[in-house]
Design a protein around this nucleic acid. Structure first.
Lengths: 213, 213
DNA sequence: CATAGAAGTAACCAGTTAGTGCATTATGTC
DNA sequence: GACATAATGCACTAACTGGTTACTTCTATG
């Protein structure tokens, strides 16, 4: 059997994967409008014809890339196993994770920005998205409930608002790092600045959610 | 003297202004790359030739639009007169203002996003920006100091981090309103949702900054 | 080992877009 | 009212871009 041939000159799956990876990079770098199909093809060491063969057209390719990106982050979040931690620690872990994920996957942010510029018209057509997002909101909702039960979290906090806030304080800092570094005349991306920001974010969320002691 | 002729068939200033206004709209709608010079010209009831005559090229036009947008928001912020309010009220007013400004000037957000996609290469060349931003950071810094003095704010808060956070919790919600409304399966832009978010944001910032009582 | 069909390629096309050359028209000034 | 100068308009182009046509090459399978 030819289950795992180490080298296959013609490997549809591998080519698809290379195209997706190159597309993610190019879309993230230049947005949907600015991305060039030719460049994606070259970067993927594939032919432009392959892209249209496997993915239909530029927009469909973008949609696939975007869906993949969302599934990736939601999958990673599910692996956090917040249930096995005390509420405070779980919350801090979530804030830390969100920050780290954005930091290590800057394409995610740019893809989301691009999608919002286009009024989410690709995500609207997607079907997988709703499922994975609902699961995520429930996870945070469960954590909040548990914290309230144990008397460490304030009651009445909307999990959606909390989710948005946790994302916001990391996302904004990173997506606007270029203009921010100019406006505030300091390098927002140097190590100390990043550490300082993460600490500030944890403080912000804990103060928001935890009961004052 | 012809000081204020109500109609001048040829009015350079008016044409320039119309071009800038149309450009702001088009750049905000489609980003720098997606914006079309022809559309700007038509929308401005001007000729494409005029754009190149007055602004050089597309990129320079974008830079002008962007600078104008930053000067506008910083000017509005200066008019808040936070010094005449008790610290807590002043802080709440700033959060409220930031939210309202983003809500009423959605182009500002999209322009900033576009500029960051391009790694702030236009803002880098700008000279007015630094001055107006420094003044703004100082304003918030002054407010923080005053609050600490009066014993209502916690000491040691970095005005830059606070600025970023106040901006973030409004900006993120609004820039990602399209994907957010799908992910969370609720209309993030209906009136009640907007009010709820503003209240949540005020709560977040007050809890972050004020001493627990 | 023959062959069907999948994988891959190069050249091309039609539409679009930023930018320009040049002629024309209005305006203030003497 | 003539003239210098600024404002405006039109038609054009050179480069680019998403998408396609027509073709070759490889590979699995009976």
């Amino acid at each position: 059997m030819t289950d795992k041939p180490t080298k296959r000159p013609r490997d549809a799956e591998a080519t698809k994967a290379r195209i997706l990876s190159a597309a993610k990079k190019e879309f993230a770098k230049n947005g949907l409008g600015g991305a060039r199909v030719d460049i994606i093809a070259n970067q993927a060491k594939a032919n432009k014809r392959m892209i249209y063969h496997y993915f239909g057209n530029k927009e469909d390719l973008f949609q696939t890339v975007l869906e993949e990106a969302y599934v990736d982050i939601r999958t990673a979040e599910q692996k956090l196993e917040l249930e096995h931690l005390p509420p405070r620690e779980a919350l801090e872990r979530l804030v830390r994770f969100t920050w780290d994920y954005y930091l290590r996957n800057p394409e995610f942010i740019t893809l989301v920005n691009s999608e919002n510029l286009h009024r989410a018209r690709h995500l609207k057509k997607s079907e997988v998205i709703e499922v994975v997002s609902r699961r995520f909101v429930n996870m945070v909702g469960g954590l909040l409930d548990r914290g309230v039960e144990q008397g460490v979290f304030r009651p009445g906090i909307d999990p959606v608002q909390l989710n948005i806030t946790i994302a916001a304080i990391g996302y904004y800092y990173l997506t606007n790092r270029f203009t921010g570094s100019i406006l505030f005349q300091r390098d927002l991306m140097k190590d100390e600045a990043l550490e300082e920001r993460l600490a500030f974010n944890i403080e912000t969320i804990l103060r928001l959610v935890c009961v004052s002691r």
